[in-house]
Write a protein that binds this DNA or RNA. Structure first.
Length: 332
DNA sequence: CTTCTCACA
DNA sequence: TGTGAGGA
């Protein structure tokens, strides 16, 4: 099949196909005498894949990598690229959602005042800009991909970082007291240790982590569990999906501003009566303790204050040393 | 009908 | 991330 026929069949221009070839995404055979490209069914199938991935907004560079994994039959890596793409799209969706909300607010102001109060609008714009930057500034400062292999060992033996780990997970499960059939989200799920305990009780758990290696292990350990790439600031789920959100030994990775944003994100994916459970090392003073190395142990009193201001009733407890648990149920 | 390159957004 | 022109 020559290029024009292929292009017509796929509803793209011949030019685009040559372009994909130039970028190294396909390599159709060329006829010896005149150098015309000949497209096999395999080539067509590959082009269809490219078009589909392109349709999802994936950049050509990433499509190239994804196809390489697919060629190597590396199912897990291919899944990683698709999920990466999904999490990118989710961030964009959140941004757009926010822009719509800002616009709605402006429309409301205009109706009410017959004009736009500039100060308010400016503050609003600044606010959304900051939120966007918070999200964008997310980085894997901790290289959990590298740590994934040793993670399960470490949580049990690291008497410093993960002191009280087992007891903390057990307490979280007890406080959440899930009803079988409920849906829960574990943020920063790692290899799914907390999620596994909840699944045992009949909860449908979803896990989010920023590390693909962690998620690989998590899926291996908990075959039925749904896992997605993502982070606190852009949870890869639509609104109102969960009965509860839980996070253990992960919240302290967020800076001050990011913590506030993360709480808002949790609320977004929760049903109206959805509860929140946060287990982590915390400090009792009024300010986060910034120990460097990307660790910002949250201030327990301030965390409680935030949640109460947002309309939650809270309950908290000390598990061991710095390790605390905070549980919150909305009353409005 | 196809190829390739150059410029352009 | 493509597209259009123009020569071979």
């Amino acid at each position: 099949m020559k290029i024009k026929e292929a292009a017509e069949r796929l509803n793209i221009t011949a030019r685009a196909i040559r372009f994909y070839e130039e970028k190294g995404l396909i390599a159709p055979a060329k006829q010896d005498d005149n150098q015309y490209r000949r497209f096999s069914e395999k080539d067509i199938w590959r082009l269809q894949t490219i078009i589909a991935l392109r349709e999802s907004g994936m950049p050509l560079e990433d499509i190239k990598k994804a196809l390489e994994q697919s060629d190597a039959r590396d199912h897990e890596e291919l899944q990683y690229y698709l999920e990466l793409q999904r999490s990118v799209m989710f961030s964009k969706w959140l941004e757009i959602k926010q822009i719509i909300e800002t616009t709605d607010y402006m429309i409301g102001m205009l109706k009410e005042h017959q004009s736009l109060p500039l100060d308010d609008i400016y503050a609003l714009a600044e606010g959304s800009k900051r939120l966007r930057e918070q999200r964008r500034d997310w980085k894997d400062l901790w290289n959990y991909d590298r740590l994934a292999g040793l993670h399960d060992q470490r949580v049990l033996t690291d008497a410093e970082e993960y002191r009280g780990y087992t007891e903390a997970l057990a307490t979280a499960v007890r406080w959440l007291a899930p009803i079988p059939g409920e849906t829960g989200l574990d943020i920063g799920t790692g290899t799914g240790n907390l999620a596994a305990r909840l699944i045992e009780l009949g909860v449908k758990m979803a896990g989010v982590d920023q590390s693909k290696e962690m998620l690989k292990r998590c899926r291996r350990k908990n075959p039925g569990m749904e896992t997605k790439l993502g982070n606190f600031l852009a949870l890869p789920y639509l609104d109102g999906r969960f009965d509860f959100v839980v996070t253990s030994f992960a919240f302290h990775h967020l800076t001050d501003n990011q913590k506030a944003l993360a709480l808002a994100e949790m609320r977004r994916v929760l049903q109206p009566r959805g509860r929140i459970c946060i287990v982590d090392r915390m400090v009792i003073s009024d300010h986060d303790s910034d120990s460097g190395q990307g660790k910002h142990y949250p201030s327990l009193p301030r965390l409680l204050q935030w949640l109460e201001d947002a309309g939650y009733v809270t309950k908290h407890g000390q598990i061991e040393g710095m390790v605390h648990i905070v549980y919150a149920v909305p009353i409005r």
